[in-house]
Design a binder for these strands. Structure first.
Lengths: 113, 113
DNA sequence: GATAGTTGTTACCTGTGGGTAAGTAGTTAC
DNA sequence: GTAACTACTTACCCACAGGTAACAACTATC
C-alpha cells in the first residue's frame, strides 16, 4: 500500500463506507431483527431488550437515512409504525454472514488454541 | 429474532467479535498495508501518513494481542522491528473484500441515485 | 378519572476513542 | 558534539457514542 496508489485509497474508502453504516453497538442487531420480517418499535425492543428507547429511535432514524430500512406509519387506533428492510438492507445479510463466519473462525483460533 | 433463540444470539456474538477486531479508524488500513508484505514501523507510517505514532503503536499492539500480526525485533545496528500478517490476519482479506464490495454497492445505491 | 400501552423526545452524565505535543533512548553521520 | 533517524511512550485534552431517567401525547380499558 502506497498513499500514491489511488486504487488502494479507493478500496479503503469503500471499506470505511461499509464500516460507517454497520458500526456502533446496535445497528447489526436491529438489521438482524428486521431480517426476520417487518416489525414495530416495541417488537424490535423486545428482540433487543438492552437497548434504550432513545438509542433504538436514534439508530432506526440513521438506518432510514441510509435507506437500509423503511418506516411506515399506520393511522390505526393506537398509532403504529412498521419498520422493514429495503432491498439494500437485505443485501447486508451476505456481509453479516461473512462477519459471523470470520468471527467464529477468529474465536476458534484465539480462544480455542 | 427472539432473545429466546440461542442460535440468533450466537450469530450476533460472532458478528460482534469480528467487529471488535476490525473496528476503529486505523485497524483496516494497517491490515491492508501489511497485506502488501512485511513492513517496519516507519514504512507503515509512510503508508498511512495521517496516523500518529501513538495510535500506530497502540493499534499494532492490539492487533498483535489478537494474533493478527507478528512483531519481530531485529538486533541490527539501528534496532529495527518488523511487522507481518499471521495466517489469521491474512484470512481477514476475504472479509475486507466483502466490506469493500458492499461499500461500493452502498455508495452506488445512495450517492448514485 | 386513573392506569396502562403505544412511539417516541429531552436533558443530563460519563467513558472512551482519538488527537496533539513533547519526551526517551540508542546509533550513526556530519 | 550535535543533529538526525530508529521506535516508541507519556501527559493532556476534547468530542462523541451511549446510558439513565423523566416526560409527552394519544387511545383504550377498568
Amino acid at each position: 500500500m502506497k498513499s500514491t496508489q489511488p486504487a488502494c485509497q479507493y478500496e479503503l474508502k469503500a471499506a470505511r463506507d461499509a464500516m460507517d453504516v454497520i458500526q456502533g453497538k446496535w445497528r447489526i442487531p436491529i438489521v438482524i431483527s428486521l431480517s426476520y420480517g417487518t416489525k414495530r418499535f416495541g417488537e424490535i425492543h423486545r428482540d433487543i431488550p438492552d437497548i434504550s428507547p432513545k438509542m433504538l429511535s436514534q439508530e432506526l432514524k440513521a438506518l432510514e437515512e441510509n435507506k437500509l430500512i423503511t418506516r411506515t406509519l399506520h393511522d390505526s387506533m393506537p398509532v403504529t409504525v412498521e419498520y422493514a428492510l429495503t432491498p439494500l438492507g437485505m443485501s447486508l445479510r451476505e456481509l453479516l454472514n461473512e462477519l459471523r463466519n470470520w468471527g467464529k473462525h477468529f474465536r476458534e483460533e484465539i480462544v480455542g488454541k
